[in-house]
Structure formats: C-alpha cells, structure tokens
Design a protein around this nucleic acid. Structure first.
Lengths: 364, 364
DNA sequence: CTGAAAGCGCTTACAG
DNA sequence: CTGAAAGCGCTTACAG
C-alpha cells in the first residue's frame, strides 16, 4: 500500500463518525456530469469495518471462504457495503483480473424483429453462462462495425459475435492479433467460424409452398418472381439458389427478369413492382420482411387484381399470417443459432467451421 | 515507473528485432479463452518507437499537440500502433481518467418495435455526442433491472436512462448515492426526471378517431371497448383516462365491463374477447401492438361478423395499415423523446421534471 | 519541450 | 489464518 493509502487509513480510523469521514473523502468533485460524489471504495469500507482492504476485497468478490476469513467479518463488511451503496469499480477489478468474462456482439439493427430477437436472446444466454454481454448496433456501416469491434477489444472482450457484419474478415483479423476470438453469425466469413441459417433449403421449401398454393388457388404452375435483397449478398444468393432449385425440381424455367433482387428497402420492393398490374396468376418470393412492406403496399393498391397474386416471405413477422395473399413465411431459428454459437465461445475454433441451422417453414 | 517496468524498457531496447521482442513479451498465456496472446501495451510501442511511454500515451490519446510532441514522433507511434493492432486498454485508461463518457440504458426488450427503436436511436444519438452507449435488456424483471443498473454503475456510467423500468425509484436511489444521474424514459419515477409520451392526449385522439370511423362505417356511436395493458400501469391508466375523456366529450357513458385491461400478452387479449361474437357494431381501443396480435387473431376468426368490428391501436407497427378493420394507430415520437432525454444528460436536474412528448396519430 | 514518477481501485501471491 | 505490498496499463501533474 502506498504511503498516501496508509495515511488515508489512519485518517479513517481517526474519523469515528461517518459524517467526519464523509467530510474527508466524500468531497464533491467538479469534473464529470452534475455534482459527483466520490464513490465508496474498499478502503472506505475497510476503515468502517475495521478490516484490511485485502479482507474487504475478498469478502466483496466472494473469495473470503477460500481465504478462511471469519463469517462475522464477512457479514460486517457486506452490511456496510450495502449501507454505503458500494459498487465495485469494474475498471480497477478487470485491470487486475486475468479474465473479463465479457462477450461482445455487433448487430446491424435492434429495430428489426430478427436482429432484435438475436440481441435479446444473446444477452439472456450470455448471462446464463456467467458471461457479461455487451451488444452494440452498427447500422450496417462497415466503419462503425470496425470501430465498435475495436472498442469491444479495448474493453477486453474475450469473444465478439459478428452478426450480419458487412466486412467480418477485417474485424476477425484485427481481433485475432489481440487474441480475441470472433464468431460470424447470420453471414459467413473466411477468418472465423460461422453459424448461419440454412437459407438454401428454407428458400427451396418456401418456393415449393408458394408454387403449391399457386397451383391450388390459381390453377397455375409458375414460374415465380423473386423480390428483394441483393444478388451479391451471401444470404440472398443462397436463397436465389434455393428458389432456382425448387423450380428445377419441377422443370420450370425462370425467365431472365423474374429475379428482382435490387435492394432491401420497402421502397425498392414497391417500385420494382410499381408498374406491374397482373391480369394473370402471379406468385412472389419476398426476400425479407422489410421488402414485404413494399410488396404489401403494392398488393393493397391492386384492388380487383389481388385475386391473381400469391406471395410468401423469407423471414417472420407476427402479423404476417393476417396479410391477405401471404401463403407462408420462413422463421429463422434464433435460439438454435445462438446455442450453436455459444458452443463455440471460449473454445479453440477453426475458421473453416460453417454451421448451417435449419429454419422453420410456417404455412398459413 | 516501477523497477520491473524500467527493466522491461531496457530489455526492449536491447531487443532490436520485432521477433525477439515478441519472444520476450508476446508469450501465450494459458488463462482466458482459447490461446491468448498478450496484448500490445504502450510500453511495447514505446520500445519499438524509441520513445517514452508518456509520449506514446499522449500520441495515442490525442493530447500530443497540447504537449507539443513532434509530428514525426506522433506519426511513428501511430504507424507502429497500427501495425501492432494496438487497442487501448479501456479499463486502465478509465481508471486514471476522471470521466468515463459512458451513458447506460436499460430497456425491457429489443424484440419489440418501440423499444428496439429506442435502443437503436439511443446508441446513434449518444455516439453523436461523443458519449459511449451501453444498452442492456432486462426483460421487465425488477431484479435484473436493479442488477443491470448496478453493473452500469460499476462500469462508471455517468448517467443511466431507465426505460420502462418497473421499479425506477429503487434504482435512482442507488445511483444517486454513487453520484450517478438517472433519467426515466417511457414510464415516470419520483426520484429522477421523467420523459414520457403524452399518453392521455394521444389516447383521447385515437378514441375520437375510432368513434368517428364507427359512425361513418357502422352508423354507430359507441361506447368502445378497451383491450390490453394493466390498470395499475402508469401508461395504461393515462390511456384509459384519455379513452374516458373522449367518451365524455361526446357524453357517452362507458359500461363497467368495457374496460378490459387484463394484461399485455396477445393470449390475454384474445381470450378476453374469445366468447364474443358481435351481432351489432363494436369498436375496440387496442392497447399495444402485442395485444393487437390477439385482437387480430380473434378478428380473423369472426368470418362474416368482421363487418361489425372496427379497432385502432395505441403503438405503431408497419404492417398495421394492412390489417383489415384497423382504422388507425398511434406512433410514439421516439426521436423526440430521446432528444428531450439527452438535453437532460449531464445537467443538474430536478426529480420533479416531467416532460410530456406528443405522439402522432396515424389514421388509415 | 520531455520523461520519470505517482497513482487510479482493485486482486492475489507471498511472507509471516 | 491474515495483511502489507506489488502491480494491472494507463494518464497527467510535475520537475527539469
């Protein structure tokens, strides 16, 4: 202990009343936000409990039994800590400990059923394993993603889950250099293991479902149109492959212009369809709920022609089953994906690991 | 600098090649997750750049101009830091600095349009102000809320936004003792300023909208039913007051059983209506999108009787306008609420401050 | 203008 | 069984 620390202790011992002690140490400081009271430290509690800072630290971090401190001491310290509203200083504690137990996650959006669910379940499951989750939302912005990952490394995160990251490999490379594990979720990467939905199979199943409904309801055999997403996006291209495979299963040829993967916004989906007023049966594979908003907007504008249209959507929304014309949706298995992800956390992993998690097809 | 530190420095100076230096300091340690490389520190960079740790620190934290270090030195240090993949140790840095710039938020859910949007905008707006946002999702669980707030205090958060907290006052009291500011968002509290939606006015407006539509579409003048939420919940009770006021505006008496605020789940909303098959005009004020799911489920089961029903919902969902029978929704002004909230962050605030933010009524 | 030194609040190996 | 002491990786007042 430094000489100032011991002086502090001696002063505390002299200060018999809490009031006096507060006069000495709880002086308000000017910096920071508002009027800031100096936070209670283990030294304050040690003085109050007539114990050493070491003993207080042991009691507060739970190692007191191992160190065979007396129950009486422990109770006393705990009571005083409670009274004083003590909260450990994580910065000081982690600086000294060898593990942070922090698991980070970057996620593109919260304001989205799928990613919102992922972030929420991630926190629940991390806490269940005594890990401390820190999630941050990076708006699909590659620079922000990288900065956020760097910040998580700075916070001594032990593992970072990269959810739907636009440039996961750059982040994985940086993290690896600091000995921080990364795992790709939802979109794969080359430098870390990946856990993703089985987009191909689910898209193939959904395509068959829409084709079946078109056959039943409209007495029509396809081919369907594909709306939403981007061809160069991994998930969209896997879904297009499934879409094509289902057509191939039925020996249906897909004409050139039927794959309309021109972007993710509702606006784009709607404008792609804008001039299209069907006079004959039409089936649409809608890629993502955000594109669905555009398709439904368009559908609502059709009036009588609605009878010619059936569609299904890859991704789930609880109101989906109430949308007229919607024959089914694909729900991704968020909990399943996270379970597989957590199996990898803290393990020696291989960048070639690529786990495909099946989705659920929900016919309406 | 300690004697070991200076020995380190001397060793570094002897270690002319990067490889040799790595042999000395980049030894893999067993602890933590996977194979962990010792992270690069300012001492490593100092040795590599032939500079003092103080100088490296200044360069890395941007204070080098103020300290008038040479541009050449700064460039050299920055280049080496980049090469080595240096990331500052926040724990060490914050332990020494007087401000953390951390702003925390607890939020009940991410998996919800409203709260998801709040969390997302909070992060964006915090970063815009050079604050570091840390959001955590507490599942409407009072114990978890308190633990999460305590953790944020431990992380030296300067301010914590309590969003929809079930027991905000307990948290505010604890935080105040540590000099940490709290602000209530969405639900008010007694011990900290509150920023909440003007539930009363918006509910009154929505009630008038539904009554108007019932008059036009069904030639019927009310009274409406109120479904969802809990009477003892602040927001629900304000909405019920608005609901009642609108009826009073039109001199309509609301019968006893018409206010069915028996809980938030979709299940509850549906079961409350389950045995009700309308044979005459009916209008429903739906409290929250989660209750809306139940109401729409019920509505879908009505068949022919759908023609007797109109409803509107407090809260917004992008698919809401496509739901048959739905005449309009209330959208809460998330950005407006957060803007008012951030105006309070870091300011000396008064617990009696109670800011009401108007909502937008969206008629369909 | 620049670097050595002190110290932030903890934790734990170590000595007694 | 228990406490003094060292040290985690930074930052900055201070001395030169």
């Amino acid at each position: 202990m430094s000489s100032i620390d011991s002086m502090r202790n001696r002063l505390c011992k002299l200060a018999t009343s809490i009031e006096l002690r507060q006069d000495i140490f709880h002086n308000t400081t000017g910096g920071g936000m508002g009027t800031e009271t100096k936070r209670t430290t283990i030294y304050d509690i040690a003085a109050l409990a007539q114990a050493s800072p070491s003993a207080v630290s042991s009691v507060l971090n739970g190692s007191w039994k191992k160190r065979r401190l007396s129950k009486a001491l422990a109770d006393r310290v705990l009571r005083i800590a409670e009274q004083e509203g003590y909260a450990v200083n994580v910065q000081a504690s982690l600086l000294r400990r060898d593990r942070s137990h922090i698991v980070g996650m970057i996620v593109p959006k919260y304001d989205n059923r799928y990613f919102g669910h992922i972030a929420e379940q991630f926190e629940v499951m991390a806490r269940d394993q005594n890990l401390f989750p820190v999630v941050t939302c990076t708006q699909r912005n590659p620079e922000l993603e990288f900065e956020a990952a760097k910040e998580l490394v700075s916070y001594q995160a032990e593992c970072i889950i990269l959810t739907g990251a636009t440039d996961p490999d750059r982040i994985s490379a940086f993290c690896a250099a600091s000995g921080v594990q990364t795992i790709n979720l939802d979109l794969p990467g080359k430098l870390a293991p990946s856990v993703i939905s089985d987009n191909y199979t689910a898209a193939r199943d959904l395509t068959h479902l829409i084709l079946d409904r078109c056959a039943t309801d409209l007495k029509w055999a396809g081919p369907l149109r594909f709306v939403g997403g981007r061809r160069d996006d991994h998930n969209t291209s896997a879904r297009i492959a499934g879409f094509e495979a289902a057509h191939a299963d039925r020996s249906i040829t897909i004409p050139e212009g039927h794959i309309m993967a021109q972007g993710y916004s509702a606006q784009t989906a709607q404008s792609v369809l804008d001039d299209f007023l069907p006079h004959a049966p039409t089936g649409i594979f809608v890629n993502s709920t955000i594109s669905l908003e555009g398709v439904v907007q368009w559908y609502a504008s059709l009036g009588e022609a609605q009878k010619w249209v059936r569609y299904g959507c890859f991704d789930f929304d609880p109101f989906g089953s109430f949308l007229p014309g919607n024959v089914g949706m694909v729900e991704q298995d968020v909990v399943g994906m996270l379970r597989r992800t957590f199996e990898l956390v803290g393990k020696q992993t291989d960048a070639t690991i690529n786990i495909l998690v099946p989705c659920r097809l929900l016919p309406f």
